[in-house]
Amino acid sequence: MAYDIKWIDLIIGSTLIFIPVALILYAKLKLLKDLILSMLRMTIQLLFVGFYLKYIIDYDNIYINIFWILLIVIVGSISISKRSEVELKFTLVPVITGFSFSFVIVTFFTSYFYFSGMEYFTAQYLIPISGMLIGNSISSSIVAIRSLTKDLIAKKELINYYEIFSFSRIKSTKESMNLALLDSFKPMLANIANIGLIWLPGTMTGQIISGTNPMTAIKYQIVIVIGYFACCFIATFISLNLFRTKAFDNFGILKIKM
């Protein structure tokens, strides 16, 4: 078991944040409000989730577990839709559909192959791994939707012209779709390529601190990285295709705005 940090030590140690606060004040940066809000939100959310996770891991009911995962998928999708700066009516259904499909596929692989020797659908495994998969996928999906929207808006006149001369919309928007996927997944792959070289990711670090054999921790990390890449790519691919369908009206005219 990892050494448990005492609450009082956690509070005293967190005064470390006052150094950046002092530097922000010194530089007169307009960052203080964001910093306080972010830190407060992070602390409250983690405390809440900590208590909640302790309860559901102890209780371990399959229905509660599934409900929790549905909640993660829906909250994640709303977060993607809102932060992509495109109206929710265009993004929400495509993103929820994409993530639901993708999540089922990735969870099937994870439970059937990686964890074939044990019961994967327990709260202890299912919930943290699902959280990692969705959580890591959010920023890439946001980048993809924003990139596609921007490019479609920039090419609106061209797409209109093609519509009049009967060039298929799937083909006329293909370049924008590919660009969105590249914008989103190139940085993710560059990050993946640096794992182990520049940084040790969270899952592995956490497990090593908890006293897990480093080789076991590495295997878990590989499961997580392949899982979140696949989850994100499948989800984004499906979401973008559905989003493109919703982005045009019955006359083939782009109706999304940013």
């Binding site: 920039a154 090419k155 006149e157 061209l158 012209y161 009049i164 001369f165």
Partner: peptide
Amino acid sequence: MSWIPNSDLKFP
């Protein structure tokens, strides 16, 4: 129909 757009049209 054929469309002859004006020359301001941007095809980036």
